Amino acid sequence: MNTKIQPISDGIGQEIINLDNVSILELDKQEIISLFRSNGILLFRGFDVDTGIFKEFTNLLSIDFINYAGGAFSRRVINGDETLLSVNDFKSEIKLHGEMYYQQNIPLMLWFFCANPPLEDGETTVCDGRQFFYEISSSTKELFNKKKLKFTVSISKEDWQKKYQTDNLNTLKEMCQKNNTHLTVNDDQSILLEYIFSAIIPSRCGKYQVFINSLLPTKQLSPKILKFEDDSEIPEEVVSELNEIAEKITTEISWRKGDILMIDNTRILHGRRAFADDQRDIYIRLCSPAFSF
């Protein structure tokens, strides 16, 4: 195939660039899978892609597409398809994180599609959770090995019905049970959710330790809901250390129209820079790979 393959940046991923009007649907699937397994993140650039082709291409390599029930943000459904969502509902920075790591059942793989790039800024940020682990000080690693983290969130009846896309308490209870989340229902049917998790996890293949979680954006956007399991605070110097590492090892992806980004959500953290214009339109699909890691 007339494509060029090069690293996205010095430390991360591979970029597959169309040189000769090749259809993205004609790319060698086994080559994509092989590159993805070894890199965890691929950027497809220069292909003629619209929303329909994006869906067709992602369907070739993925299974178990999910909607965003229980998700932390508000997301717009595209063309009536609940597995195709816009990630543009506010414009501020989102720090590096794993997708939906505030619950047990995460999408193992993510696809992003640039329907329209921003006029400026709004880059997607990525880094390798393996590298992040290696950069963390031994004292912070020890702290995270000793203490798990805990999300504690209070949600009104109206808000949880919207967030979980149901008004049935039994359905909510089932969802929480499947996600290993402790649910308390109050008299007014507002709820309290508690979810305990490790900041550092073994990689899917079991050979590596990976720092991947939602700690940094939670501390940025809703700091009070995240503490250690014993209800002690996460020290400010630890959060500062993690933010410094994140900036040091971050790669920025400046979007071009039609770009597709394929991410291993068990290894690669992602986020985004702030932006100001209304042009930026990036879509996401949440799924599992149709192949083994």
Rank of each mutant, 00 (worst) to 15 (best):
F54P: 06
N179Q: 06
L286P: 12
R76T: 13
L149P: 02
M1P: 00
T181P: 02
S198Y: 04
Q209H: 08
S254V: 13
N265E: 09
L42F: 03
K4F: 12
E229L: 03
I32E: 04
V210G: 00
R45C: 12
T3I: 15
E142W: 15
D278S: 06
N39V: 14
L143N: 01
Q220H: 01
V77M: 12
G129P: 11
P117I: 10
I284S: 03
L84K: 11
G258A: 01
T184I: 11
K91M: 02
M175D: 13
Y208G: 00
G122F: 00
F113Q: 03
G258D: 00
E99R: 02
S203C: 06
L35A: 08
L242Y: 05
L61V: 12
V126F: 15
Q209Y: 07
Y68V: 03
F151E: 09
R272D: 08
S92Y: 08
L286S: 08
D81K: 11
N79P: 05
E237W: 15
F293S: 07
T266K: 08
E15A: 10
L60K: 14
T51V: 11
K173Q: 11
G13N: 01
I63E: 02
A69G: 08
Q177A: 10
R37Y: 05
V22R: 15
N145E: 12
L27H: 05
Q14F: 10
A115I: 04
V239T: 13
L172F: 06
L27S: 00
K157W: 05
F36H: 03
E82W: 07
D159E: 05
S86N: 03
T166G: 15
I282T: 14
L96Y: 09
N243H: 09
K147E: 08
I5R: 07
L221H: 14
N79R: 00
N265H: 10
D230Y: 00
I94E: 07
P217C: 09
I24R: 01
F113W: 02
L261M: 08
I78S: 02
K173D: 13
D20Q: 04
Y102Q: 10
E174K: 13
D277W: 11
I66K: 09
I245L: 00
I284N: 01
I249C: 03
L19V: 11
T251D: 08
S74G: 10
I225C: 15
S137D: 15
F197M: 06
F54H: 07
A290T: 13
E26P: 06
A69S: 06
E236K: 14
M100F: 07
V77H: 02
K163N: 07
S86Y: 03
Y102M: 07
K157G: 03
N186W: 10
I63A: 09
F211Q: 09
R45I: 03
L84E: 08
E135I: 14
P289H: 08
K163R: 04
P117C: 05
D167F: 14
R37I: 13
E241L: 12
R75V: 07
L149C: 07
N2Q: 12
Q161G: 15
Y195N: 05
V185G: 01
D278R: 06
C287A: 02
H97V: 02
